[in-house]
Simulated scan of single mutants.
Amino acid sequence: MSTKRRTYKSYSPELKLEAVKRALAGESVKVIAHHFDITDPDYIYKWMNQYEMYGEVGLKRKIRNHPQLDKDAIIQELEMESAYSSLVRIFGNEIKRKREEVLIKVSDN
């Protein structure tokens, strides 16, 4: 019985994008897999689905085995982006008001 650990090969987002673009252009998935040394041509089909759903960003995201965890992560990211946008909106207006006050003081002198 072997105690060797299984190693997994990872692929860069750039390689995934190039493989997807070539597949969408009509090139054979097997040929693309062989050219890029991709161990399983089915990966390219998965990347194509991710690309169609999320665009290029989908090729950079790490997909989790549990779909609910992935959905929770997306929701958390969106909530953080919304909070950030709100802070920028609030403090952005405050900064504009301070700037106008300074300009008024300068013009009064």
Rank of each mutant, 00 (worst) to 15 (best):
A19Q: 00
K98A: 14
R99L: 15
S10M: 07
Y51A: 00
K60Y: 08
V20H: 00
S86C: 10
A83R: 11
E79D: 09
D70M: 12
A25L: 12
S2I: 05
R61M: 10
K16M: 03
K30C: 13
Y84W: 11
Q68Y: 10
E18F: 05
I104Q: 12
N109C: 13
S82G: 07
E79V: 00
N109A: 11
S12C: 02
E77P: 01
E77S: 05
A23Y: 02
K71H: 05
Y45V: 06
M53D: 13
A33N: 06
K96F: 09
I95M: 11
Q50V: 01
T39Q: 12
G26T: 01
K46Y: 14
I63Y: 05
Y45C: 05
Y45K: 14
N93E: 14
S2K: 11
V31L: 13
H35F: 08
L15Y: 03
T7R: 15
K60T: 09
I63N: 03
R99Q: 14
K62Y: 09
V102E: 04
K46Q: 14
A33W: 03
Y8V: 10
Y45T: 09
R89T: 15
G92V: 07
N93M: 13
V88M: 11
T3Q: 14
V20G: 00
V106W: 13
E18A: 11
M48L: 09
R89V: 11
S28N: 13
I63M: 10
T39K: 12
L103K: 13
T39N: 12
P41R: 06
S2P: 13
D72H: 06
S2E: 11
L103I: 10
Y43R: 09
R22D: 04
K16I: 00
I104T: 13
V31N: 11
M80P: 08
V57F: 08
E100M: 14
G92E: 02
E100L: 15
P41T: 03
Y11M: 02
S86L: 12
K46N: 14
P67C: 06
L17Q: 01
V29S: 03
L15C: 08
F36I: 04
E94R: 08
W47C: 02
N65P: 06
T7H: 14
I75W: 07
M53W: 08
D70N: 09
M80L: 13
